[in-house]
Design a binder for these strands. Structure first.
Length: 479
RNA sequence: CUGGGUGUAGCGCAGCUUGGUAGCGUGCUUGAAUGGGGUUCAAGAGGCCGGAGGUUCAAAUCCUCUCACCCAGACCA
């Protein structure tokens, strides 16, 4: 290994040594975020924001394709509104930030900074829904929300975070259930195809359910330390909110009915997920579809005549073909320094172009995911690079999936379960009672992540109490 | 919230035990050479030692209180 290998390790804590430290090292050194002067808040710097914009753009298109429209709700919620759904308040009250003054005057009713917007959507829906002809309402909003969390970590859990929240209203329970599952599917596809993150989909247990929901479904992803990240959730509210908020409509049969609702959300937490899924000891590794820079062009010996011009000509060609490229023409840094920096920032492909390449009419490429090097001819470069980006996207998903699959174990005893969650996910049978679920949390410090749609009968009895069990649950330590 | 740790130059740290006008590495600025995996040399700029109070002739250093951040756990849509 070249001598820089050793120096590199001193800059980013290896994952093996301390995964949490590795994570904070990577996000700060790659210039993604900085800590804000407000407790628990982060600043997304341009590099992280570019990733978020690419996520938004592609996910938003998927929402549009499934018939949804965007709206913008206020960020403040009167306390009385928040109190309308009992379970909901109970779930969120401890972590709400309050606005108590307008200017210098004490407000007659304090206002919550939205921790989520169910109560606002429901209030408006009550006005907007009169007839079965008004349904369904399929709305979404991109915004930030605030939850006064006790412990925070950039992307994974911050006081303020950016997300999207979809809120829909339907005439029937069947339609609401269909919507809930449809959007879960959108999240699954988005994670697997865009973020290259394999996910497990399924139903949440009651204790892991959203405050106020009838049923919560989630997509769970394994990080490289074996812990699970809840990447997105989709809820079926039934009439839990429409009843207190009086979202009623006159149906075809001439009777008043309460509407059925859903909500679904995903956040900047996904960025934390992709970091912990794909990163390595050299830093970030960003899937091409969300990489702000898909190919960085490094002119080598750029002081020599014709090098910079050739690099820029290549960049122009690739830009015209729709590739996100950047020419690093800084003359203040050596080539070697730039190699390492762009690797740390996770750019999928590095293209080197120097006198030798120009003479051979090709560029030297290096893949970030495998560090494999090779040559690409000037002729047809647009297509060969596009192909390479697809190859990398697919390879990253395959690698992450293989990693996860190798760390999913089946358990029929508590010993096996406790041991398994030290390094990954454990599939085990559960009787369905909260006591057994609590016991697993106590002894293995693992929680029920999801009850997968693809069930398997691993045993006839509960892993905890030994009573008959028919639910297969995936257990893991979670973020 | 509980336990542990850390706050000194942009970043990473030493100095504190045994008080005596603040140091190293890196980065930054300027110049020269170098240039295909974190180059080299030279000359510079940069700090109310997290904050408040106290002890003292004198506090980065000792005492009290506070704030922030990090780690482990608890809690948590």
């Amino acid at each position: 290994m070249p001598k820089n290998e050793k120096q590199f390790v001193t800059e980013i804590t290896p994952r093996e040594t301390d995964f949490a430290k590795w994570y904070t090292d990577v996000i700060t050194k790659s210039d993604m975020v900085d800590y804000a002067p407000i407790r628990g808040c982060m600043v997304m710097k341009p590099y992280a924001m570019s990733i978020w914009e690419l996520i938004q753009k592609q996910m938003d298109q998927m929402f549009k394709d499934t018939g949804h429209q965007n709206v913008a709700m206020p960020m403040l919620i009167p306390e009385s509104l928040l109190l309308k759904e009992a379970e909901h308040v109970e779930g969120f009250a401890p972590e709400v930030a309050w606005v108590t003054h307008g200017g210098n005057d004490l407000l007659p009713e304090r206002l919550a900074i939205r921790p989520t917007s169910e109560t606002l959507f429901c209030t408006m829906y009550a006005k907007w829904v009169q007839s079965w002809r008004d349904l369904p309402l399929l709305y979404n909003q991109w915004c930030s929300v605030m939850r006064w969390e006790k412990t925070t970590r950039p992307f994974l859990r911050t006081a303020e975070f950016w997300w999207q929240e979809g809120h829909t209203v339907h005439a029937t329970a069947e339609e609401a259930q269909e919507e809930t599952l449809k959007m879960l599917g959108v999240y699954r596809d988005f994670h697997e195809e865009v973020l290259a993150m394999p996910v497990l989909c399924g139903l949440k247990t009651d204790s892991e359910k959203f405050a106020g929901a009838r049923a919560t479904y989630g997509v769970e992803s394994m990080m490289q330390d074996g812990k699970s990240l809840q990447a997105a959730t989709s809820h079926n509210f039934g009439t839990n909110f429409s009843e207190p908020f009086e979202i009623k409509f006159l149906d075809k049969d001439g009777t008043q009915k309460f509407a059925h609702e859903t909500s679904w959300g995903s956040s900047t937490r996904m960025i934390g997920g992709l970091i912990m899924t794909h990163g390595d000891d050299r830093g970030l590794c960003i899937p091409p579809r969300v990489a702000p820079v898909q190919a960085v062009i490094l002119p080598v010996a750029q002081h020599k005549e014709g090098v910079l011009e050739a690099a820029r000509a290549i960049a122009d060609r690739l830009k015209a073909a729709g590739v996100r490229v950047h020419v690093d023409d800084r003359d203040t840094q050596s080539a070697g320094w730039k190699f390492n920096e762009w690797e740390m920032r996770g750019v999928p492909v590095r293209l080197e172009i120097g006198p030798r390449d120009i003479e051979a009419r090709c560029v030297t490429f290096c893949r970030r995911d495998t560090l494999e090097k090779g040559q690409l001819s000037f002729d047809g470069l647009e297509q060969s690079l596009a192909d390479l980006l697809v190859t990398i996207q697919d390879a990253m998903f395959a690698k992450a999936k293989a990693y996860r699959d190798a760390r999913v174990r089946d358990a029929v005893t508590m010993e096996e379960l406790t041991e398994g969650v030290q390094t990954g996910f454990v599939r085990a049978m559960w009787c369905g009672c909260p006591e057994c679920e609590g016991k697993i949390k106590e002894t293995a410090s693992a929680t029920a992540r999801v009850m997968p749609f693809e069930q398997a009968k691993l045993a006839d009895t509960c892993v905890v109490c030994g009573k008959p069990a028919d639910k297969m649950v995936v257990w893991a330590k979670a973020y």
